[in-house]
Structures are given as structure tokens and as C-alpha cells.
Nucleic acid binder design. Structure first.
Length: 405
DNA sequence: CGTCCACAGGAATGACGGGCGG
DNA sequence: CCGCCCGTCATTCCTGTGGACG
């Protein structure tokens, strides 16, 4: 029963290249754009008819798209854009589209950089002033004599961080352009965002609005079934697997991305375990694994003080279930003293707690306790073990954990 | 019914490392 | 190489506020 190292590797590689579960797992990934988008026919038609004037060289209206995460906003937009560009090519119309995810490029400057890239204009990562970058972008765009459709996905991130300056300038960019025209498609999952916009931006960006309602469990099943056909070998999906993925995701406001993730990871786990079928237990394991990975990634990229504050929250909530800002801050100060480092101010700590809340590792709810002041009630938004494990990967946190007994 | 707690969170500012144009 | 600009993390100073208590 001796297996040599090369045999083992051979097996691993063999398994990696020929899956007993998947035909093509890529179709389950969030960035895959299918040819069919079930239950989004209406939105496709609307966006299509809004953008269609581009094919006659006219400027389409600006569009504002709302919908929660995983409701198909991005997929529909990319899909329509792809078809539009194909058509434009046939007709010989110069339509340039540019998709920017503003969560990844969350500064005005980086967005301009991305937009410029779509024109084939290379700008330095840094060094230029934003105004200069914008000027060059407009100049290059005008030289193209094109209809430029810029899609800004998750614009709430940009607006929160930098305000609506860029939006304003882009929607007004047409006044600076002699030969080109620019259309802005803004995508957001934060409906409240609109209220924070400059009224001028709101009216120009909201020329047309499209709403993406969440999927219900039945619709999610349709989506999953359609992708599963392409992704899995026939017959490997166990009874109720698709229904379970759909049900779990439906609970989270009908998030199709969540549902697809569950299905894909469940398949991967089944494969890893050498199972010939994907079973319900694999879906449950997938749910845990996804959560663990998410937490781990978020926590690892946290700066030291963020980790220390999270560690404080962890310690306090273990005892009493929830914590207040003041409790956390005191605990955190004590940790800093033990480590011999300086603590940040409470003002900053308050911001860090908000950030942790936005990242989804904790829940922080503002409550007023009357006579006893206003504070945040903080609890964990992820399993204790997952957060603890992720924190302990940092040696500086381990330093704090070890002397405890 | 007004006070006043324990913070929330806005605004201005700065230190710092990184990176480009000239 | 310098000067300028960037993003990030942080500080200081500040005004705002829901509701239990007196």
C-alpha cells in the first residue's frame, strides 16, 4: 500500500481536471453572465429601450437602477450593454461603454482612471490632480466622437466617501463635449442614497429609474435550475438541494448571488469529500464555509486597532451577549495598555465600530437609554468561533489571548 | 415637562508613505 | 531630485439627540 508522492499528485491533478460533479463550475460564479436571465425580462426590455437611441447616435437618458444585492442589476446591465455593443458594431455606430465597480474603485480619481481606460487613455495611478485627470478624460472622450455609456455600479460607496461631485460633473459633461455624448447609468442597492444627492444630480441622473425587486424562493429555484443544468453533471444533485439553496437565499432578501454561491460551494464540498452526489448536508456545510471565509477575509484586512476593538467586542459579548460603545472603549484601552501601545480616541473608536458594522462582522444598533444616554448596542453578526479564529491569525492578538486562563 | 447622560457623528486639520510630472 | 497630490488613519473640537428620571 505504498503510494509515491508522484502518484498522489497525479491523483490530485486528475481530480482537479476531471470532476465527477461539475461540468463547468464557472457558470455558478457571480461574474458569469448567462444568456438567459429568468424573471428579469421586464428590466431588460426597459433598459434596452432606454439605451437604444445610442444606436442612432443620440444620447440615451441617464438611468438610475435600484435593487438589493443579488437581484440581477449588474447582470442585466452587462447583458444589455453587451448586446448593444454587438448591434452598434453591426451598424457601424461608435458606442463605447464602460463598467466601473465603484466599491473596488471607490474614489473619484480611480473612477476617472477606469473610465479613461475604456477610451484607451492611460493615466498615472497617482500624481495628477483629480481636476487634471478629469480634463484629460473629457478631452480624450471628445476626440472619439462617440456615445459613451458609463455604468457606475454601487455608486453609494462613492457618494458616501466623496460626495456627488463626480456624478454632477459627468451628468453635466455633455456641455463640455462637442463631438461626443455621455450617458450615466448609476446602480445602487441603497434607496436612501437618492435623498442624499444634490437635487441637480438627482434630477439628471434620475431621468429614468428602474427597480429590481428581490427574487422569491420560486424564482430563485428557476435561476438555480437553469444554471445547474450547465454546471453539474446530470443526476449529481440530490433531492431538495436546489430548493434548500433557494430557500436559504430567499431568507436573505432574495439574493441570487448568495444562492449560486451556496450551490457552487456545496458542489465543491461534495467533490472534496469524494461524494458522487451533492446532498443537503453539503449545502449546510457550504453555508458555514462561506460565512467563515467572509469573516476571515474581512478580519484579516483590518488595521490593528480595528482588530483590537473587535477583540474587545468579542470578549465582552461572550459574557453578556451585547456591549455598548463605552464598554468596548474601556476594554480596548486596557488592551492597549497591556500591549504598551497608544489607543485611538473615542471618536475614532466610534468610527471603527461603524466600519465593523458595515463590514457585517457585528451588528450595531443605536439606542437611547434615556437618563443613561444614547449609545450603540453591539452584538456579533457572525459566529464567535469564526471571528475568534480569524483574529488569532494575527500574532499581536495572540499575544493578548495566551495569558488568559 | 425639562434635564442631562453617553454617546453619535459632522467639520477641519494633520501626519505619513507612495508615486508621478517636470 | 523636488513639489505636488493622493489615500489612509488619526486627532481636536464640536453640535445634536431620544427618552428615563427627577
Amino acid at each position: 500500500m505504498v503510494s509515491r508522492a508522484s502518484d498522489i499528485l497525479e491523483m490530485i491533478f486528475e481530480r482537479a481536471t476531471s470532476s465527477s460533479i461539475f461540468i463547468n463550475r464557472e457558470v455558478l460564479r457571480p461574474d458569469y453572465i448567462p444568456d438567459e436571465l429568468p424573471h428579469r425580462e421586464e428590466q431588460i426590455a426597459r433598459l434596452g429601450s432606454i439605451l437604444a437611441p445610442a444606436l442612432q447616435g443620440a444620447r440615451p437618458s441617464n438611468v438610475f437602477i435600484y435593487g438589493l444585492t443579488g437581484t440581477g442589476k449588474t447582470a442585466v446591465t452587462k447583458f444589455v450593454l453587451k448586446k448593444l455593443k454587438q448591434k452598434a458594431l453591426q451598424l457601424g455606430v461608435n458606442v463605447i461603454s464602460c463598467y466601473v465597480n465603484v466599491r473596488q474603485d471607490d474614489t473619484t480619481y480611480r473612477v476617472i482612471l477606469r473610465l479613461s481606460e475604456c477610451l484607451g487613455l492611460r493615466l498615472p495611478f497617482t500624481g495628477l490632480s483629480t481636476a487634471e485627470a478629469y480634463r484629460r478624460f473629457i478631452e480624450a472622450l471628445d476626440a472619439k466622437s462617440a456615445i459613451f455609456i458609463s455604468v457606475l455600479d454601487e455608486i453609494d460607496f462613492l457618494v458616501r466617501k466623496q460626495g456627488d461631485e463626480l456624478l454632477y460633473r459627468l451628468t453635466r459633461g455633455n456641455e463640455e463635449l462637442a463631438h461626443s455624448k455621455i450617458t450615466v447609468v448609476g446602480i445602487t442597492n441603497d434607496i436612501k442614497l437618492v435623498e442624499n444627492l444634490d437635487p441637480r444630480v438627482r434630477s439628471s441622473l434620475g431621468e429614468v429609474e428602474i427597480v429590481f425587486p428581490p427574487y422569491n424562493a420560486v424564482q430563485l429555484e428557476d435561476i438555480l435550475r437553469q444554471r445547474a443544468k450547465l454546471a453539474f453533471r446530470p443526476g449529481v444533485l440530490g433531492e431538495g438541494v436546489i430548493q434548500l439553496c433557494a430557500a436559504l437565499a430567499a431568507r436573505e432578501h432574495g439574493d441570487a448571488r448568495r444562492a449560486l454561491d451556496l450551490l457552487r460551494v456545496a458542489g465543491e464540498i461534495a467533490e472534496r469529500e469524494g461524494s458522487s452526489k451533492v446532498l443537503l448536508e453539503h449545502v449546510y456545510k457550504a453555508r458555514m464555509e462561506i460565512e467563515r471565509d467572509r469573516v476571515s477575509e474581512v478580519v484579516q484586512t483590518l488595521p490593528l486597532h480595528g482588530k483590537l476593538i473587535l477583540y474587545s467586542i468579542l470578549s465582552i459579548t461572550r459574557g453578556q451577549g451585547s456591549a455598548t460603545t463605552g464598554e468596548v472603549y474601556n476594554y480596548y484601552r486596557a488592551l492597549c495598555r497591556r500591549l504598551g501601545i497608544e489607543s485611538v480616541t473615542q471618536r475614532r473608536a466610534s468610527d471603527i465600530i461603524s466600519e465593523l458594522d458595515m463590514l457585517g462582522v457585528i451588528n450595531a444598533r443605536i439606542v437611547s437609554r434615556g437618563r443613561y444616554g444614547k449609545t450603540r448596542i453591539i452584538s456579533l453578526a457572525a459566529p464567535y468561533e469564526a471571528i475568534e479564529a480569524a483574529l488569532l491569525e494575527d500574532p499581536r492578538i495572540r499575544l493578548l489571548a495566551l495569558p488568559r486562563h
